[in-house]
Each structure stands twice: as structure tokens, then as C-alpha cells.
Amino acid sequence: MIVRLLKQPQFLIGFLFIVSFILLSFIYPSVMDVQKESKFLYDENEVIVGIAPFSPKDMPPFGTDMNGKHLLYLVLEGAKYTILITLVIAFLRIFFALFFSLFHRKSKSTFFDDIVQATLYIPTAILAYMFMVPLFVKDATEPMGMMTLIVVQCLILVGIGVPPLVSTFSEEIRSILAKDYIVSTFSLGSKKPYVYYKHVLPELSSKLLLLFAQQAIQTLILLAHLGVLAVLIGGSKTVMMGDIFNLTPSTISLSGEWAGIIGQSYQKLLTAPWIILVPLSFFAFTIFSINLMIQGIQNSLESNKS
């Protein structure tokens, strides 16, 4: 399976993009010399001629955000958190959905079906928002620490994705169980756990990778949406910015992921659009790499069939 996938150029390209992104994010301080901050711009006489934010024209390649932090640095720093959180969430969604769907099939509960039916009409961002806001309220009254907050938020994001997946999986499993050779395996007297482990899971496995990639894309989009809604993973802190005469409260993302960059300067969209557009285009780029991987997986599945 893996060897066959590696032969697909599209899969390979997408995979390399993502892996190199994560690696670069971890090792860039020792490899590249990225300037972190420049709040003021001086001319040759050491006179201040400009103040952050700088556009990409003034400070190539990506400009700086409102506090003078270079976006290149922020994006590189955030890449590892964003991609790893996304992958973990997508993995857990698949894992729990598989776990539930094995039981769901037996108990004919319509619990999941009802929720799935309802979630069709509620955008996932609103759903996540509904769960996140009480969490923040609770965090404000009794602080729970950043790690716990991140874990709980990830669990929420996992939980939102599980019910639709469960219904997909149980349909898939039902169609596999209806196959002739499974029926004959049962009539030869094999136990259910054996059949699930030996036949159903291998049949599902090719589908699983595909669903995993799709879930990763959905999670990335959801993260971006939540960033705009100012619901940041890892929480946010309100600080007073600006000079003495013009104090304005602004939120600062505590974890460095990309949605946080979007969220903390979304209000400045029209004065400094690049602060939003740069992380967003990195989102787009990551999604594109995953789409390439999906294309590769589909190609290898098709060549497998024929």
C-alpha cells in the first residue's frame, strides 16, 4: 500500500511539502536567519520613518503584523502547531468514529443519526463556537492552564467531527458485511471480532487514509473560521496596545498557530490586509498539498482496482 502510494508523484509532492513544512518549522532557527521583530523603520540618519505594520513592500517577503513581528517568522513558527494539531484532530476523529461505529451498528440507536441530521444545517464553525464560548467563560472564572485548555478545545473539535463520520463508517461497514465472502465466513462459524479485525478493517483501510486527509482539510478550514470568530486555540489574552492617548484593547494569541495570527489582527483587515492574507494563503497551500495527496491516493486506488 505505502510503496504503491509512494509511486504516485502527486502524493509524493504533497507529502514532501507537508513534511518539509513541519521540519522547517522545527529546525529553522539553526538553518535560517529569520529576523523576528522590527517595530520601527529608520532611514540613513537613524530617524524613524515608519512604524509597524509594514507592508510586504517595505519588509520583504511578507511584511510585519501590528506589533512589528515578521510574518515569515510567525508563519514558520506557527506551521508546526497548526499542522500537528490538525493531524491529531483528524486522526482522533477517525479513531473515535471507527470505535463508535463498531458498536453503533449493533445497538440500533438513532442517537447519532439524529445529531447528524441536525448538524447538516448548522455550519461547523457555529457548532464549534457554541462549545468554545462556554469553555472560555469557564476558563475566565476558574483558570485551567493553557495545556488543559488546548486539550479540551481539541476534544471539542474532535467531537464535532465524529457523528457524521460514524454514519459514514457504519454505512460502509454495512455494505462490507453484506458481501458474499463475509456472509460465508460467518456461516463457517467465525466470531464477529475476528471478522471485523481480519476482513472489515483491511477493506476499510484504503478508505481510511482518504477520509483522514479529507478530515484534515475540514479541520484546517474550521480552524481558519474560528480564527476569524476570535476563538483561538490555546486561548487569548487581552492587552492594551497603542500609545498613551489612544489605548485600544487587542487580543493576542497565546499559541502561535496560523488561525491565531488571523484572529488577533482581523479587525485591522482593511488597514493591513496582508496580515490576514499571508496566513490564509499558507492555509490554502497546506490544503492544496493535502488535495494533491488525496489525488494520489485516489489514483493508486483506481489502479489497484483495474
Binding site: D114, Q117, A118, Y121, I122, V137, K138
Partner: peptide, 23 residues
Amino acid sequence: KRLRSILIGVLIISFLPSIFFGI
């Protein structure tokens, strides 16, 4: 039938946050 199922689903979803976080 579908509407009933949606209604139950929305009911569950709308009360889950307060159940989880006690608010």
C-alpha cells in the same frame, strides 16, 4: 420522520454545551 430526527438532534446539540461546562 426526518424533521423529528432533526428536532431531537438540535435539542441535544443545543443543550450539550451547558451540560458539559455547567453553565
